[in-house]
Design a protein around this nucleic acid. Structure first.
Length: 316
DNA sequence: AAGAATCACAACCGCCTTCAT
DNA sequence: AATGAAGGCGGTTGTGATTCT
């Protein structure tokens, strides 16, 4: 014997809610609170299914709901989160507290219709062809290195390996999304660029406090720099306030205490402290021009099977 | 000005999971 | 443990408003 039925489904109204119905529902919930949707319609004097009452309350009548046009920031968040988790509207809505999943869903469906006509949010084809990729990083193609330039792996490769290993170590899926503008195209506000070096640096800092992620990150650093191998993990990292530190168990191609990686335009360094046999990663542009790209930003998002569990979003 | 097309969004439908019985 | 409705969620539709031709 299961629960008793919610309603008879006979003589129930459908369609748009009237002002009087809204008043009845609000008055009832004001007195007794939301919930018990099974018995609510009878008690509130509504000829509606309990499910319909719940929907009306959560999507429209509930206090604190923000209505009207989404802000650019909200749109930005939705688009990025959707690239990460797909159509998990309720998960996305949790990061826009005053918006309902229904509203976000409606926005996205409208957005999709427009999408074919602009490239405002230009993401890597890998991302757009695979709506729910796990453990991948999409980097600006302009930062990809040609084979002839490489003495080590490209930073794009390295980033992807880092993400894959962090995902495995933390048992979460992970994706880092970047956006970039192409100078030769029409100006595209809110579509900034960034470099792989900055992404790596930011990633290291963002995982401060997450031992599993940090260890995975450090392992990749140990394995990923000299060849294309994956596996054969080295020692794990230790926390030092947002910077990943690893044992100096590797050497660099310049045979000194720094590590060079990636293309001609980007250099990443690992400085070694011989006194305690540790190395500190610091990924910098070759000219350390932190102010050269004022419009840069980064979003780092992690999620498990059911929900987004953290978001980092900040300017670089 | 009028009809068509598009947009915005509330609401319904059906499926799946949770939970009371 | 089994059952079946409630609750939650995403897909879809219906409809009034707005814009276009």
């Amino acid at each position: 014997m299961g629960r008793t039925p919610c309603c008879s489904h006979e003589h129930l109204r459908k369609g748009a809610w009237t002002f009087q119905e809204d008043q009845k529902l609000k008055a009832y919930i004001h007195t007794y609170g939301p919930g018990s949707w099974r018995t609510l319609p009878n008690k509130a004097g509504l000829e509606r299914c309990g499910k319909s009452c719940r929907l009306r309350w959560f999507n429209y009548l509930r206090p604190g709901i923000k209505r009207g046009r989404l802000t650019k920031e909200e749109e930005h968040t939705i688009i990025t989160l959707h690239a990460l988790v797909g159509n998990r509207w309720s998960s996305i809505a949790k990061h826009l507290p005053k918006r309902t999943d229904n509203e976000i869903k409606n926005f996205w469906n409208s957005y999709l219709k427009k999408k074919n006509n602009n490239n405002y949010y230009l993401l890597d084809p890998l991302l757009t062809n695979n709506p729910q990729p796990a453990a991948t990083i999409t980097t600006p193609t302009s930062f990809s290195s040609s084979a002839s330039q490489l003495t080590h792996q490209s930073t794009s490769n390295l980033l992807n390996q880092v993400a894959t290993n962090i995902a495995a170590a933390t048992r979460t899926s992970f994706q880092l999304v970047t956006r970039y503008s192409q100078q030769q195209q029409q100006p595209q506000p809110h579509v900034p660029s960034t470099s792989s070096a900055r992404l790596l640096n930011k990633m290291a800092n963002s995982f401060y406090g997450n031992e599993a992620a940090k260890a995975a990150f450090s392992r990749l650093m140990n394995n990923g720099i000299d060849d294309e191998q994956v596996g054969g993990y080295g020692l794990g990292g230790v926390p030092t306030g947002g910077v990943v530190i690893t044992p100096s168990s590797f050497s660099d191609n310049n045979n000194n205490s720094s590590w060079q990686c990636a293309s001609s335009s980007e250099f990443n360094y690992c400085t070694t402290d011989s006194s305690n046999s540790t190395s500190t990663f610091s990924f910098l542009d070759h000219n350390n021009a932190a102010s050269a790209h004022d419009d840069e930003f980064i979003q780092i998002l992690r999620y498990d099977q059911d929900d987004i569990i953290s978001i980092y979003m900040q300017d670089l």
